[in-house]
């Protein structure tokens, strides 16, 4: 699943380059939305869905830090 999501994210970046609508000013969706803009609204929605899936399936296992592992002002050096 992780690999699939990475592939889909790369594909999304590739599909962003919608040269096929480059000269189409006639096609409108819902009577008012130019097709190129509608497509990119779709790209933004797809980004939200894919990154949401990435948060579920590709979340780094070591991201969380427990409070007892964290640096505290009274807990000594932070090493920088």
């Amino acid at each position: 699943m992780k690999r699939l999501i990475v592939v889909l994210l790369v594909l999304l970046a590739v599909l962003h380059q919608d040269f096929w609508w480059r000269n189409d000013h006639e096609t409108v969706l819902f009577g008012f939305l130019p097709v190129s803009m509608a497509y990119h609204i779709g790209i933004a929605i797809a980004a939200s869905v894919l990154w949401g899936l990435a948060c579920v399936y590709c979340w780094p296992a070591d991201a969380e830090v427990r409070d007892d592992e964290a640096w505290s002002p009274s807990g000594g050096s932070r090493g920088h």
Binding site: A44, A47, E64, V65, A70, S72, R78
Partner: peptide, 29 residues
Amino acid sequence: MASWSAIVHAACFFLVGVKLWTFGKRYGY
């Protein structure tokens, strides 16, 4: 501008933001 940002901003938050938060909390940055 917008749909590029939709893809790339989320990528930066996921790949950079989370890691920096982890190090920030662990080491006090």
